[in-house]
Amino acid sequence: MEIFDFLGEDIITEQKIEKNKQLKSEKQQIKNELHKQKVVQKKKEKKKKIKQQKYEVIQTLETQEQKNDFVHQFKGLRNQRRENGIKSLQSPFKIIIDCGFEENMSDKEQRSLARQISELYQENRKLDIPLKLYVTNIYPILHKYLEQYHYKQWQLISDERLFIDIEEFKQANIVYLSPDGEEELQEIKEDEVYVIGGLVDRVIMKNATLNRSRQLGVRSAKLPIGQFIKKNYKKCLNVSTAALMISGWLQYKDWSKAFDSIVPQKFKEQEAEMQ
C-alpha cells in the first residue's frame, strides 16, 4: 500500500510538472502572438502617420508646381534610402552582429535584440557612408522575431552559421568589440571586420563579449567612449548605437564628435560635471 501511494504521488507530480510546462508554453505563444500583432499595428500606424503628414504639408502649398516638387522630393528621399541599402552591400566597412548569446537572454531581451537590429538596418539606409551589415548565428527564436520585421527582404547578409565558419571571414582581420576589452579602438580600418555582440542584458553581464572573443580566438577592443559617459552610467552601448558610433567616426574621424552625434543625451557627461 505504501509503495502504491509513493508511486501514485510520483505520477501525480510528473503530471503537474508536464501540465505547468504546457501552460507556460501556451502563455508564451499567446504573448508572442500579441507582440507580433503589436509590431504590425505600429507599422500600420507609422505608415498612416507619414501619409497624413505628407497630406498636411501638401495642403499648405499654394501652387500645383510646389506640390509636384514636394512629392518629387519625398519620392527622392525614399529612393535614396533604397539606393543606400544597395550601396551598403558594396561598402568596405563590414559590421557583424554575432547573435550567439541565446542562453544569456530572456524572451523579452531576444525580442529587443530583433528590434535593435531592425533599427540599425533602417538607420544604416540613411547614412552617407553606409555599413555592410551581417547578422550571423541566427537561431530559431530570433529568426521568428526578425521575421516580424521581414528581415529576409533587407539589403544585408544574414546567416545561421557562426561568423568564423563563414568562408569570407576565415582569413579576415577580426576585431570583437567589447566594453571590457583592454585595448581601445583608435580608428576604423577598411581591412578590419568589426563584430558586435548581439546581446541585450538588462542586468549587465561582466566580460560576456570579452569571453566570447577569447572563446573564438579573435582580437578584442573597446570603443573609446569612457571619458564621454557619465560616471554613474554603464560604459556599454546597445547593438544599434555601437554600430552607428562606427559610422559616426567614418564621418567625423573623431570619436568625440561621433559620440556627440550618435549617443543619447542620458549617457553624456554634463559640462558641469566635467569641470
Rank of each mutant, 00 (worst) to 15 (best):
M1L: 13
D5Y: 04
L7C: 04
E9G: 07
D10Y: 11
D10I: 12
I11H: 00
K16S: 07
I17N: 09
L23N: 04
K24M: 12
S25I: 07
E26K: 02
K27C: 01
K27W: 02
I30V: 14
K31E: 14
N32V: 00
K36C: 11
K36W: 04
K36A: 15
K38W: 02
V39S: 01
Q41M: 12
K43D: 15
K44V: 08
E45Q: 09
K51S: 15
Q53T: 02
Y55H: 06
V57N: 06
Q59T: 15
L61M: 15
Q64Y: 05
E65R: 08
D69Q: 07
F70E: 03
Q73R: 03
L77A: 00
N79H: 11
R82N: 14
I86G: 01
L89T: 14
Q90A: 10
K94W: 10
K94H: 14
I96Y: 13
C99W: 07
G100L: 11
F101S: 08
S106N: 11
K108H: 12
K108R: 14
E109F: 00
Q110M: 14
A114N: 06
I117E: 11
I117R: 07
S118E: 09
Y121N: 13
E123F: 07
R125A: 15
K126M: 10
L127S: 05
L127V: 03
D128F: 02
D128N: 14
P130K: 02
K132V: 05
L133N: 05
V135S: 06
T136S: 08
I138E: 08
K144A: 14
E147T: 09
Y149L: 01
H150C: 01
Y151N: 12
W154Y: 13
L156Q: 04
I157S: 13
S158N: 10
D159T: 05
D165L: 13
Q171H: 03
Q171Y: 00
P179A: 01
G181W: 13
E182Q: 06
E184C: 09
L185A: 00
E187R: 05
K189C: 03
V193S: 06
Y194G: 11
V195C: 01
G198H: 05
G198R: 03
N207A: 02
T209E: 12
T209A: 03
L210V: 00
S213H: 08
S213A: 15
Q215C: 10
Q215I: 04
L216Q: 14
G217C: 07
R219P: 05
I229N: 08
K234M: 01
K234H: 10
K234Q: 07
C236A: 12
C236D: 12
N238G: 05
S240A: 11
T241K: 08
T241V: 08
A242N: 12
A243P: 08
L244D: 12
L244E: 13
L244M: 15
I246A: 06
S247M: 02
G248A: 09
W249F: 15
P264A: 00
K266H: 12
K266E: 15
F267P: 15
F267E: 09
A272K: 03
M274T: 12
Q275D: 06
